[in-house]
């Protein structure tokens, strides 16, 4: 079946089964490979995208549901929070292998949009669904604090 799907502000017409996970559509059909396939069963967070602004695991979102929403992927995440996160990520050299990082960043940006100055616990809660095989957790947490502080002074 054909679905019109809005990804990163652009409407794409895709011909796929409605039960196809959005992650497959993003990576295989639209060639947006920034979003990663880690587990396919909602356990790792590597596939996190924003669905109508809310972080969501694209491996467990059927195309037929995603088609009625606005999808944002790592390729086009923007805004002050995304900029602050990017700066902090670069300054702290957060990624190691990098595989989990697009998912981490999508969750971190959403966290800063919800909570301006997250505590360590807030970060743990929001980020607990994002696994990092390289265990960059300490740098991730520090970078989120940096980004929050930077947003605080900019405001």
């Amino acid at each position: 079946m054909s679905y019109a799907i809005s990804v990163n502000g652009q409407v794409h017409h895709v011909e796929d089964d409605g039960q196809t996970p959005l992650l497959w559509v993003l990576r295989d059909t639209l060639k947006l490979t920034g979003t990663k396939y880690g587990c396919g069963v909602a356990q790792c967070g590597a596939c996190t995208v924003h669905v109508d602004g809310t972080p969501t695991r694209s491996c467990t979102l059927p195309l037929e549901v995603a088609a009625s929403a606005r999808i944002t992927t790592i390729e086009s995440i923007e805004g002050v929070e995304a900029q602050a996160i990017r700066g902090a990520w670069v300054a702290r050299d957060v990624p190691q292998c990098g595989f989990c990082q697009s998912g981490q960043i999508m969750s971190a940006v959403a966290l800063l949009r919800t909570l301006k100055t997250p505590t360590d616990r807030d970060i743990d809660v929001a980020m607990s669904g994002n696994i990092c095989r390289c265990a960059t957790y300490n740098r991730i947490r520090a970078a989120i604090h940096d980004a929050a502080a930077q947003l605080g002074t900019a405001r």
Partner: peptide, 21 residues
């Protein structure tokens, strides 16, 4: 769920056979 990690981050309106969620 917590405001920053809702159940709906993973759980949709129906069972999803592909992921088993």
């Amino acid at each position: 769920g917590e405001p920053t990690l809702r159940c709906s981050t993973c759980h949709g309106a129906t069972n999803f056979e592909s992921s088993g969620v």
